[in-house]
Amino acid sequence: MRLARIWTLFKNTLTAIGRGELLLRLNAGKYLPHILYTFFIFGIIIWISVKTDDSINQMERNQATIKELRQENAKLRYKMARTASRSAVLDRLGKKKSALGEPEVKATILEK
């Protein structure tokens, strides 16, 4: 009996498909917003995936920039250390014929 029912259901489904009435029979009209929403979600997913790829590419570009900036920072710190040494400063003062140099006597600190 059950088998007969299943066979009838199957036959009716095929007939409905053949006549183009399947969705009508299923009363799919009331599910139209849900169907549209599903396709909307598909679109969103594709859009997010494209945006993700763009973000990853941007991140890569940023990483490369950060690496360059770090290297630049290291170069500048090296340069700064070289030029800020006491002897380098005195050298430059000497070249500019400045009267400024190492103190002759020790400093006096006035405390509060």
């Binding site: 190492e102 103190p103 002759e104 006597v105 020790k106 400093a107 006096t108 600190i109 006035l110 405390e111």
Partner: peptide, 14 residues
């Protein structure tokens, strides 16, 4: 002598 002249650690405090 140079340290005493130049380094603030050895400065006189008033």
């Amino acid at each position: 002598n140079e340290l005493e002249r130049t380094d603030p650690e050895f400065a006189e405090k008033l």
